[in-house]
Simulated scan of single mutants.
Amino acid sequence: MVSEAIINPAMMIWARRYAGFIEEYEELLPGYIKKHYKLWENGEKYPTWNQLRQVSNKYNVPTAFFFMETEPDFDDLPTLINFRKIDPDNYKNESPELIKEIRKSEHRREIYLDLLFELNEPIPKFEVIEESKSRRNVVKYIREKLGISLDEQKSWIRKNNSLDKEHYNFLNKWKEIIIEKMGILIFETDGVILGEMRGLCIFHEEIPIILLNGKDTTNGRIFSLFHELTHLLLGESAICENNELSDEEIFCNAVAGEFLVPADDLNNNAHIISTDSINGLSHLYGVSTHVILRRLYDTHNISHNEYNSRIETLKEFSTSKSKGSGGNYFNNVIKYNSESYCAIVLEAYENGIINSGEFSKFTNLKKKYIPDLQKRVYGGEQ
């Protein structure tokens, strides 16, 4: 006879809501579990231990959680509510995938802070902008804080004497410098649809978080990176979608556009507007052709009609898509976790603060990948 796990049914309900499943029984688990799920929540039956482990993995909570006598205060848990500034009833609008990624990013930040403390590394305070928050001041502040001139930015189009047409070098350089100079952790999601979220930021006075959608194009992630950075500099947490047109979103878009493609410099380079010149400007600044067109319109180099016409042409012929989670496993783990986070975990392992099991748990990399990570961190990219 298969032994049952005598759980608290109220905790089964709590865990489902915690994971973001409000009424979606049909999407929860395999059919043989769905068949009994409502009975578990009603207390009419109990799951087997194997079934409980599957539910535990789905909801990302320990199995011991289901045996608690008292439910935690649910309204204290969804950090998402603070981002949206919405009523808790709207919590059900967020997908379980997004909720999981947000909680994962917060958990990695806690690990990062703990390891910095144990390594006796300084924990920097994040500095918001105290002066006038005009677009010009914010752009100037970012440029000075990062210490990267426009000429240096333009030089990133070449890596190892090759043209970086996909702008991966731009993205990796910006992430590395923002983490180093501003003390921000930058992660990427795995499994969140692009229509729900392009980027989000979580404000903390120490080590805030930027979370980019890993399904987005390289150029899309570059723009979102500076959009989210602007929110943080204003002392805000935010989730950003494709269709939001609030004053805050418009301002953050304007800062990102002006920083990446400064108007004065663009005017000096926008002599003849053609498909080839637009592509050339895209590579010059390390942004998408869409951003270039928007900047050309904002700087009065093209008319509204020409802007709309060229945008429609881009939509019709664009073939640039994210490669998602394909490719090299090791590189994908670094992409989702960030090299800086993995480097701190590696340092803690090398100093005997954590063991190989904890290294694997914190990074999702098996012990066999440690030499690869050491080469990445200490000897340059693979």
Rank of each mutant, 00 (worst) to 15 (best):
I250L: 08
P30Q: 00
E69V: 10
V333G: 08
Y369S: 10
S155M: 02
G220S: 05
E244C: 14
A348E: 00
N355Y: 09
R135K: 14
N50H: 08
S338V: 01
L281R: 14
R16L: 09
E127T: 13
S134N: 03
D89E: 15
N161T: 10
Q382S: 08
K175W: 01
T218C: 12
N90R: 12
A256G: 04
E258G: 13
D216N: 01
K125M: 12
Y32G: 06
K159V: 13
N90P: 01
P371M: 09
E306Q: 12
P96H: 07
D76M: 08
K315S: 04
R136M: 14
Q382N: 11
N57W: 15
D276K: 04
N308K: 04
S105H: 05
F223D: 02
K35W: 09
I178N: 11
H107G: 04
E110W: 10
S237M: 01
Y285F: 11
T275W: 14
F66P: 10
A254N: 13
P30E: 00
K145E: 05
S155C: 05
G379P: 02
I354D: 03
D87Y: 02
E4G: 01
I22T: 10
A343L: 07
N253S: 09
H300E: 08
E205A: 06
I7C: 09
G352M: 13
F362Q: 08
S282P: 06
F362H: 00
G286C: 15
M182S: 04
Y336E: 07
P262E: 06
I157P: 09
T275A: 12
I7W: 02
E27M: 01
S95K: 02
I184W: 10
P62F: 00
F187S: 15
N253C: 07
T299F: 06
G357Y: 11
E176S: 14
L77Q: 09
C342P: 12
E144F: 00
T70Q: 11
L80A: 12
D73F: 12
I202N: 09
A5H: 12
P88W: 03
L28T: 00
G326V: 05
G327A: 14
H283F: 03
T230D: 03
L113C: 10
R295W: 03
S356I: 04
I302L: 03
L146T: 09
L28S: 07
N337R: 15
G220T: 08
L346C: 10
G220I: 04
V138T: 07
R295Y: 01
T289D: 14
Q153I: 06
E26G: 14
N305H: 10
R221K: 13
D216R: 08
I6T: 09
S277H: 07
D75E: 15
I370N: 03
P62T: 00
F65T: 01
Q153H: 06
Y341D: 13
Y32D: 13
Q51W: 05
T48Q: 02
K173L: 03
T48L: 01
I123R: 05
